[in-house]
């Protein structure tokens, strides 16, 4: 096989130089104020998770198995969207570049999103949606307990408000997981399948990086690993009552918190951001 010719012929190098001279540098991506990167990032991780999960849950509107569920799911989605407004609003404030919660939600591309991968998982059947909600709620509840004690009063205040809502989400999703796990053979099977399928997306909740370490050291946010014990306890309790088997594997898909997502997020954003992208600068 003949070797490939050197791509960078003198002509190509020259062309690249001329191109670079002809066009000014791209406008820079906004950078958070000095020393605020880690907090900004942390707020995105929370706010993007509530945004994307809220979006997923809202897809059920009008399509769920009972009217009561339509109402309850809309409620959960509403809480999550409301929390998103607070978290991303604060993120914009911390960033100090004048971006609003809406700017962050509607004008970033997938690689700038920091949500947990579990939030972007497709809804699947109703059991899958409920199991995803339960696994998330159990974590979310622990997280907000930690954040309510944050050394940053703005964070503590949002967490206290959101914590009340999420305590209710967890109560509701736990209750349904128990009832369906210990329901018919079919409902049991569906719930176990959902648990097995989602399990590899739970590990990411507890993985920390240097930004998490910085936040924990400054008392702003809990160390992700520290949330595991409480979460495990909730799961043991609820899943036992639901007669469901906790999966054994500990493999964890990860990357969401660093902006490396599944293919699904792009489609969520294409839908969610359509109007803002198609009609830039319009006010709604």
């Amino acid at each position: 096989m003949p070797s490939l010719p050197d791509m960078n012929t003198p002509e190509v190098a020259d062309l690249a130089r001329r191109e670079a001279d002809a066009h000014p540098a791209h406008p820079t991506v906004p950078q958070p104020d000095a020393g605020q990167e880690a907090l900004f990032e942390t707020l995105l991780r929370i706010g993007d998770s509530t945004l994307i999960l809220g979006h997923r849950v809202s897809e059920w509107c009008g399509h769920s198995p009972a009217l009561e569920e339509d109402i309850a799911l809309a409620n959960v989605a509403l809480d999550l969207i409301g929390q998103t407004q607070l978290w991303l609003g604060l993120a914009g404030e911390v960033e100090g570049q004048g971006r609003s919660a809406d700017d962050l939600a509607y004008l970033r591309d997938a690689w700038d999103f920091r949500n947990l991968l579990i939030c972007e998982r497709p809804n699947g059947d109703f059991g899958h949606t409920l199991m995803r909600q339960f696994l998330f709620d159990a974590w979310h509840h622990e997280l907000l307990k930690g954040l309510a004690a944050s050394s940053d009063p703005r964070v503590a205040e949002i967490a206290a408000k959101a914590g009340k809502e999420v305590a209710y989400h967890l109560e509701r999703s736990s209750d349904l997981v128990v009832r369906l796990g210990d329901g018919t053979e079919e409902s049991h099977r569906r719930m176990q399948e959902a648990l097995d399928a989602l399990w590899p997306y739970t590990g990411e909740m507890f993985l920390g990086d240097d930004k998490d370490a910085d936040m924990a050291a400054r008392g702003i946010a809990p160390d992700p690993a520290s949330l595991r014990a409480g979460w495990d306890e909730t799961l043991r309790h609820v899943l036992t009552e639901a007669t469901l088997q906790i999966p054994e594997g500990d493999f964890a898909h990860k990357g969401g918190k660093q902006g490396i997502h599944t293919e699904h997020l792009g489609y969520i954003l294409a839908e969610m951001q359509f109007l803002q992208r198609a009609y830039p600068g319009a006010s709604w």
Binding site: P65, A66, E69, F126, G127, D182, G183, E186, S187
Partner: peptide
């Protein structure tokens, strides 16, 4: 699609 869900709750 929701039949199994409603039946599951009833059975429980």
């Amino acid at each position: 699609d929701g039949a199994w869900f409603r039946e599951g709750l009833m059975a429980h």
